[in-house]
Write a protein that binds this DNA or RNA. Structure first.
Lengths: 198, 198
DNA sequence: CGACACATGTAACACGTTACATGATTTG
DNA sequence: CAAATCATGTAACGTGTTACATGTGTCG
């Protein structure tokens, strides 16, 4: 449900055409969640079907514009005002995977923890890099090198910081898992249950 | 892709029937991600279509058993051995929502932060409670009150700790967002831009 | 001219989710 | 007996995702 409402939010700033929506969506989310162009059109089609957006003619260049409708605005603000349900959290794949691995005699949870840690560490480094140079890469930072950012830049920054904190939490969790497994090593009776210690 | 592989992992322990799979899935994931029974059957159907599981007769009580196949085992272990791609992380709805809110003149990001914080705090309390009494609620803890847990209990514990760490990270992020918005308050020129301070 | 970005769409599919239909068995 | 749980499925739908078809404009 994020893309639908994301597009609605973008359209609240005025009529847009499809390709433009993709660009702006990626810009606001720090290019972290690439959005396939096709997805924009299919989603626009569904939004139109539901009466939340409507075609709004063309701009000077002949682009097919879409505009948000009143029901669309209502739906958007309902969404923005409603916190995300933290009960029934989205299924976390690393967690499920590890939960299954510790119960699966053939699996090697420790190896999974190691490789997952490397993957996540790399992502963390990359996101930290992006955050630290956020806004420093030309564009519109010429005049106010340390001043308050525009809303879009703020949005990018918040998303990156979200990813960074989430990655750090995942790493901490992986450490914790490693400890737990080291403690109760005899928990899962593996085929070769010997003393290899990583 | 988590449910598919989750069911495969359960079936590696031997043939199971649908209803049983649901129970065990919820048990291993700490009842955090309730699984609709219908989903089990549809997923089993798709797994069978793909040759990863196969019907395996009935048990004594007449339950329709399914067993994992060799390709299924291969797929399972490939999945267990492969870390989750941390690039292209799953779209985080709170992050997208807030990113859109800080750019949306009509929205109230501060209010969203507050309500989201309350929601997440409540979930955090609940999960902490569940973790602290994990294993203490009868079942099979009679004999070894502090000893190492069985694999399933370990799995439940790890999942709960994952949720707890994730919730804490989200709360920290929300605080950070509140600070950022307090700093650059003039960032988004709102309709009523006045000095209400929460 | 050829390659590439811009731009709009469609078709097909996967996964997850809910709601419904149906029956057996248990339990108060 | 009635209600609840166990148990097996099916139908329909929604979102997200990819791959493809198509055309325009631009730039080297």
């Amino acid at each position: 449900m994020s893309i639908r409402h994301g597009l609605l939010a973008l359209l609240e700033g005025g009529p847009r055409y499809g390709y433009q929506l993709r660009t702006e969506f990626e810009s606001r989310t720090g290019s972290t969640w690439p959005l396939n162009v096709g997805q924009v059109y299919t989603t626009l089609g569904r939004l139109e079907r539901d009466g939340l957006v409507a075609p709004a003619g063309e701009d000077g260049a002949g682009h097919a514009l879409y505009a948000i409708t009143d029901p669309g605005r209502a739906e958007l603000h309902a969404w923005l005002g409603r916190p995300v349900e933290s009960a029934n959290p989205p299924r976390d794949e690393p967690a499920i995977k590890l939960a299954m691995a510790v119960c699966s005699p053939g699996a090697d949870p420790a190896a999974l923890i190691r490789s997952q840690r490397e993957r996540t560490s790399a992502a963390l480094r990359e996101w930290t890099r992006l955050r630290d140079r956020a806004g420093t890469d030309g564009r519109d930072r010429r005049d106010r090198p340390n001043g308050p950012n525009g809303p879009e830049e703020t949005a990018r920054l918040l998303v990156l910081e979200r990813l960074i904190l989430a990655a750090e939490a995942e790493l901490r969790w992986l450490e914790l898992c490693a400890d737990r497994l080291a403690d109760g090593r005899a928990a899962v009776p593996s085929a070769s249950d010997g003393g290899r210690e990583g």
